[in-house]
Simulated assay, not measured.
Amino acid sequence: MFSEVELIRDVTVDAENIKSDGLVSRPQSFIMTRLLEDLVREKASKDHGYFLAVTSLKKIGKMKAVEESGDVFFPVVFNCRTFLPYEGEILQGIVHCIYRHGVFLRCGPIKYAYLSARKMPGYQYVYGQKMACQKCGHDRKPLFVSNEFAKIENGVVVCFMVLGVRWFENWGNVKNEFGVLATLEGDSLGPISLSGSGELDL
Rank of each mutant, 00 (worst) to 15 (best):
E4N: 08
I8C: 13
D10T: 06
A15R: 11
A15S: 10
E16Q: 13
K19G: 10
K19W: 03
D21E: 10
R26K: 14
S29V: 10
I31L: 15
I31F: 08
I31Q: 10
L36W: 11
E37D: 15
D38E: 14
L39G: 14
K43E: 10
K46E: 15
D47E: 15
F51Y: 15
L52G: 12
L52N: 11
A53G: 13
S56N: 14
L57W: 14
I60Q: 10
I60L: 11
A65K: 08
A65V: 09
V66D: 01
V66A: 03
V66C: 07
E67C: 00
S69E: 09
S69W: 03
D71G: 06
D71N: 13
V72G: 03
F73S: 04
F73I: 07
F74C: 04
P75C: 08
V76K: 08
V76H: 07
V76M: 06
P85R: 02
L91W: 01
L91M: 15
Q92V: 12
I94M: 09
H96E: 07
I98K: 03
Y99H: 12
R100V: 10
H101E: 13
L105A: 03
R106W: 02
P109H: 03
K111R: 09
Y112E: 12
Y114G: 06
Y114C: 07
L115I: 01
L115C: 01
S116P: 02
S116Q: 01
A117Q: 07
A117S: 12
M120T: 04
P121H: 05
Q124A: 04
Q124D: 00
Y125S: 05
V126I: 08
V126W: 01
Y127I: 00
Q129M: 06
Q129F: 02
Q129R: 09
M131K: 07
A132D: 07
Q134P: 00
C136F: 00
C136V: 01
F144P: 00
E148F: 02
E153T: 07
E153M: 07
N154T: 09
N154Y: 09
G155M: 04
V156R: 01
C159F: 03
C159M: 09
F160L: 09
V162L: 08
V162N: 05
L163W: 02
G164W: 08
G164V: 05
G164I: 04
V165Y: 08
F168R: 05
W171E: 13
W171H: 10
K175L: 06
N176A: 11
N176C: 08
G179N: 08
G179H: 06
V180I: 12
L181H: 01
L181I: 06
L184T: 01
S193M: 11
S193E: 13
S195T: 14
G198H: 08
G198C: 06
L202F: 13
